[in-house]
Amino acid sequence: MLQGFILGIASGTACLAYCAPVLVPVLLGEGKNIQRNYVILGQYLGGRLCGYLLFALLAWAVRFPLSGLQDRELVFGVVYVVLALFLVYYGLFNHRALCAGQIIEQRPIKRFSNRLPPMPLVFGFLSGVTLCPPFLLAFTEAADKVAVWQSLLVFFTFFLGTSLYFLPIPLVGAFNRFDALQKVGKLAAVVVAVYYLYAGLIKIAGGVIVS
């Protein structure tokens, strides 16, 4: 148990580095105060935990199914592309009053958005299942465990350790009185999406070439 937590503490900055480009635009885009930002962070981390636990189960059940480089590249490339699509959706369509998406909003998009879980949860989940180096370490650690609960426990404690580093981020809510920041956050989500889309497509192409 302690092993997962220590691994989380040791890798937290790297996790933060991988998550910040998604989390910061989302927190700005929501435009909430500090307290509400902690709720959003909770949703994000909840989504991330779900992603981690899903992998813990996979790690235990099928004994490291993504061992081949090409499989990894393909799967995580697809996750990146999905993440990019959700970020675009978040930046341009999923809004209450303020953003560029207003110009292009259409009814099917509204119907789609009504069926979705909260966006921070979705982003947390997709970040949780994305292959960052510390995550891989935890994955390897969990794959060694015999019982499913041990595997889950490693991921859970790893999650707790890394989550500590996320605690200061909701403080951006101190600037929520600037409406402009909300628009900036939404547009930044789209810019980040372009980056993930590129990274995803390159990973998929790499995976296809290798396989």
Binding site: L16, A17, P133, L137
Partner: peptide
């Protein structure tokens, strides 16, 4: 060298 701490790779 990383931003806050050393990187794994």
């Amino acid at each position: 060298d990383g931003l806050f701490s050393e990187r794994k790779k």
